[in-house]
Write a protein that binds this DNA or RNA. Structure first.
Lengths: 198, 198, 198, 198
DNA sequence: TATGAATGAGTCTTCATTCAT
DNA sequence: CATGAATGAAGACTCATTCAT
């Protein structure tokens, strides 16, 4: 059972990360200053340092938290889907939905994260795992004749690329389609390539 | 005709942008400091301010220069291609090749540019024009029965997304395929969606 | 008679001073932080403020406590010694022995104390009293013909200076002589000056 | 020949060290803040960092400069003196005079320097060299029968201790004796120990 | 009484920008 | 035009002190 102390700590850390997400999404890592985060969290600047060792650590913790959540959600949904087409759809939807609910998350994850040397490698790794998971599913489907033989990993990465692009556009401009339409379009695009008879 | 004065100015600005590209690609906007750029350009720090009003302006000018070049090149190659499939290939190759030749360009354009609030909108606009150009070509091909009817703009954006993804992966990891193989894979993927009989 | 309350207070103050002595000796006043002292004392930081008004007050109280103890010990030993030569020896030994037993004491007293503006004057005063006590003994001995007439106060200060120097060197480097040899050397040095026939 | 650039640099560094000496002498290392030094030097805070990498470096450079000067002066004067008694006198006078002329020097050198972990060892070394030089002179005099056999190094350190004590007292209280009287007293004290017939 | 989380003033350090030469 | 020394505003981080529990 958690001690009261652990609960409070967890609560504060969460509050700080929530504040940091807003600030970093808006201003980026360099321009998002500790005063902003403190103000957003309703805390004094010094308090941030009781829960995180440095600005970088806040950023890393935020990245870690959100990427792990996305990764876990994606893997779960892929596994739960009944067939490859649905697995692809779930992979895409996991991303689209999360970006919808948590716009700041994607602004940071996609836009900023890759730009900071101290997170680049980690970031790639977080992307890789769900992608490889999807690739494995493609391979299995291919070996069962469900789809034709394809370079599965490349297709999986392409899936991630397409989802990313769709999200970025939805974040910037007006949204004219529903999430499931958006996902449907991408799934069809990919499925055409998987099922085409050469 | 250009005065000597204009020639010198142009020469200096070019040198500064070249230096800035290297520095920003390596360190990002925030960590790439004016001293770095000056040193890289072989000029004194103060001299930078004779040719650009501020650090931000250097960055904007760099973005402008490189994005315009990419845009113009892409448009030209699309127009020169004989049919839609080749137009798509040229669109992708224009990006892949430029990223190959000028890795720094892409590291900045893609990774950093989007993260800086003062360039976000502009950046989207530079991407848009070639994409819409490609979309128009798709529409023409569709109306001539060359491909089936599709949401051309979405396909065009998808093309850009796929190209971007391929580039990013080539920048990070080891390169196992040639540029034309890479482009070929993407073209086939897209072509399947354009030509498939439902 | 002391109330239980007073006993507890006295106990806590002592514990805090003992902790502070270790911390300040190791890190100095500026770098020895309240957290260190609290941890060393096994108390919470806030508790320190129940017994002392501020960090400076802890330092002052520590200085007061240890210097008073040294002073009292020195005076007692001088008075107990049978003749001037032994009084000088006791003056020196009181210092050497205390530094031996309580290295931290001397590191603070000598090294740091003098550097803090808020203790400078006080510090000199604590040194002065035993020195003047010794000087008086010298004068008495001189007026009884035990030693020749000398500027007694200067000799007494010189005694303190020599003892201090010996201690500092023993704190830093390897110790090659016993305490009584060390004291003996200094006593002989001083005695030569007191007994010499011009 | 020095370039103009070197002259300016040297001039600035000197000005900063002079300012730092005053500030550190007054307030110590921890409380002497960079703003103080900048103000005292008539420079902006940032300028200090053009000439020194950090606050610590300023402190180290100051210590180095002043200690080297004292050391060199002491060695020169010892060598120039015709006999041991005068060498001892010069050793003491070198210190007394310097403290007289540059009171801040001694407040820092003696009081603060030893308290900072990052200078402790160096500081001992600066003291050691002149002391050992004097010790060697004592040995030579002893082997020529000029004085009796004594533990020369201990006597030399005692000389340094006595000089230090005298200086400290002159810095604090009113000065009732001339420098040469002060030195004369100490020389006689030491000489008695060196010449006494046991 | 004891606690330790919270505070925010204070410090070092960096770096875009200016300007006298 | 070119320079680079000087500036000072801004930001990360520390820690003595307070106060609600």
């Amino acid at each position: 059972m958690k001690t009261k102390q652990q609960v409070v700590t967890e609560f504060r850390r969460r509050a700080i990360l929530d504040a940091a997400r807003k600030v970093f999404a808006h201003k980026g890592f360099a321009d998002g200053i500790m005063d902003d985060i403190a103000a957003e969290a309703g805390l004094a600047k010094g308090t941030l340092y009781l829960y995180f060792g440095s600005k970088k650590e806040i950023y890393k913790a935020l990245l870690h938290h959100d990427m792990e959540a996305l990764k876990a959600d994606t893997l779960r949904r892929i596994d739960a889907a009944p067939n490859l087409k649905e697995k692809i759809r779930e992979f895409i939807l996991a991303r689209l939905e999360r970006a919808e609910v948590n716009r700041e998350f994607f602004r940071i994850m996609d836009t900023h994260a890759a730009g900071l040397s101290f997170t680049r490698t980690q970031y790639r790794d977080w992307l890789r795992e769900p992608v490889l998971h999807l690739a494995a599913a493609i391979d299995r489907a291919a070996s069962q004749g469900e789809v034709r033989r394809v370079p599965s990993e490349k297709i999986a990465w392409a899936t991630a690329d397409l989802a990313r692009g769709a999200i970025v556009r939805r974040l910037v401009g007006p949204t004219e389609t529903t999430l499931s339409e958006e996902a449907g379009f991408l799934v069809d695009l990919l499925w055409a390539a998987l099922s085409v008879k050469p």
